[in-house]
C-alpha cells in the first residue's frame, strides 16, 4: 500500500466543518419542529370520522413513507419552481424534510394518542376542563411522553437524512465535506472524519434527548 494518511488538511478545515455541523443541526431541528406540528395536523385528519380528511391524510402519509426522501427533495427543489414557487437551497431542503417528517411524525404521535384511554378524556370533561386544556394536558403531553423515544430516533434519522440535502447544495455538513474533497482530494480521510462526526452527533443527541425527556416528563403517573 503506497498511500500515506494525512489528516492535516481535514483538521485545518475544521472551521468550515463546524459551520457544516451548525447547518446540519439547523436543518434537522427546524424541520423536526415544523414536521411534528404538521404531523399532528395529519394525525388529527387521519383519526377523524370524516372520510375526506381521512383519505387525504392516509394518502399523504403512505405516499411520503413509500418514496425516497431524495426524490422528495428533487420534487420540491426542482419541480415546484415550475409552478412558480421559487426557493433557496436551504428553504427547499427544510420544506422537503418538513413534509417528510410530518408523515412519520403523524404515525408516531397517532400511536401515542391511541394509548390514551377514553376514560381519561371523560374524566377531564367531568372536571369541567376546557377542550384546549384537555388536548394539552390529557391527550398530547402523555401521548408525546409515551412515544418520546420514537420521536428521538426520528430526530436522529432526520439528522442523518439531512446529509442528502447536499445534493441540492444546501449548506450542511456533507456539502462542506464534498467541497473540501474537491479542494484537497483527501477522500478517505475526509469521509472517515465525516462519519466520525455524524456518529458523535447521533450518540450525543441520543443521550441528550433522553436526559431532556426524563426532566420534562418527570411528573408522576400514579
Amino acid at each position: 500500500m503506497s498511500y500515506t494518511f494525512d489528516f492535516g488538511p481535514v483538521f485545518a478545515a475544521w472551521p468550515m466543518l463546524w459551520t457544516g455541523v451548525l447547518g446540519t443541526l439547523k436543518l434537522s431541528s427546524l424541520s423536526m419542529v415544523m414536521g411534528v406540528a404538521l404531523g399532528i395536523v395529519f394525525m388529527m385528519m387521519r383519526t377523524s370520522n370524516k372520510a375526506v380528511p381521512k383519505v387525504i391524510a392516509i394518502g399523504y402519509i403512505e405516499l411520503i413513507r413509500n418514496t425516497p426522501i431524495l426524490v422528495q427533495v428533487f420534487f420540491v427543489f426542482f419541480g415546484l419552481p415550475a409552478l412558480g414557487l421559487r426557493m433557496s437551497a436551504e428553504q427547499g431542503a427544510i420544506l422537503a424534510m418538513t413534509l417528510n417528517c410530518a408523515a412519520y411524525a403523524a404515525e408516531i404521535v397517532r400511536g401515542g394518542v391511541q394509548s390514551i384511554r377514553s376514560g381519561q378524556i371523560e374524566a377531564g370533561r367531568a372536571l369541567g376542563m376546557h377542550t384546549l386544556d384537555i388536548y394539552r394536558f390529557i391527550i398530547f403531553r402523555p401521548a408525546i411522553r409515551a412515544v418520546y423515544p420514537a420521536l428521538c430516533s426520528q430526530f436522529i434519522l432526520m439528522m442523518l437524512n439531512s446529509s442528502l440535502m447536499s445534493s441540492v447544495s444546501a449548506e450542511e455538513l456533507t456539502y462542506f465535506a464534498q467541497t473540501l474533497d474537491t479542494q484537497t482530494f483527501r477522500s478517505f480521510e475526509i469521509y472517515f472524519v465525516l462519519g466520525v462526526v455524524y456518529l458523535m452527533l447521533s450518540q450525543f443527541f441520543s443521550v441528550a434527548l433522553q436526559v431532556i425527556g426524563r426532566v420534562y416528563f418527570s411528573y408522576p403517573t400514579k
Binding site: 500500500m1 498511500y3 446529509s163 442528502l164 447536499s166 477522500s187 469521509y191 462519519g195 455524524y198 456518529l199
Partner: peptide, 20 residues
C-alpha cells in the same frame, strides 16, 4: 446506524480507491 448511508457509500466509493 449512527452515520448517514450517503457517507457510508461515499467512504466506500471515493475513499477505498485511495488505499489501492
Amino acid at each position: 446506524q449512527g452515520t448517514p448511508l450517503l457517507v457510508q457509500l461515499f467512504f466506500v466509493y471515493f475513499g477505498l480507491p485511495l488505499l489501492g
